[in-house]
Amino acid sequence: MSTLHTVNKSPFATTTLASCLNHALEGDAILLIEDGVYGGVVGTELAKALAAAKGVSLYVLSGDLTARGIDTARLVKGMKPIDYAGFVALATEHDRAQAWL
């Protein structure tokens, strides 16, 4: 039993990503979409919390990332860019989806 969490808000505007990280369980996945992708880069306050999320897989939607001019080279270690097909695959691999708004 595992959950796919999506986060669509910038961590610099809301506490959404922090709250998601606080509630993700081992085996879950977190996918950053829309303005949520700003939370996926190195050198931020939250990067440490992302790195500390043990047993949680991290993904970012590549279309949203490139749209905002962020190079995949800047992503935190272990954060994987995926496309829409990858999003669908993740949704099917998990038992439920939880949108953090």
């Binding site: 959950t3 606080n22 509630h23 939880q98």
Partner: peptide
């Protein structure tokens, strides 16, 4: 507490967020 909340979220068939 937070851990209990996380466990409750992980024990659902459907989660609707607002």
């Amino acid at each position: 507490n937070r851990d209990e909340m996380a466990a409750i979220m992980g024990d659902q068939d459907v989660v609707l967020s607002f």
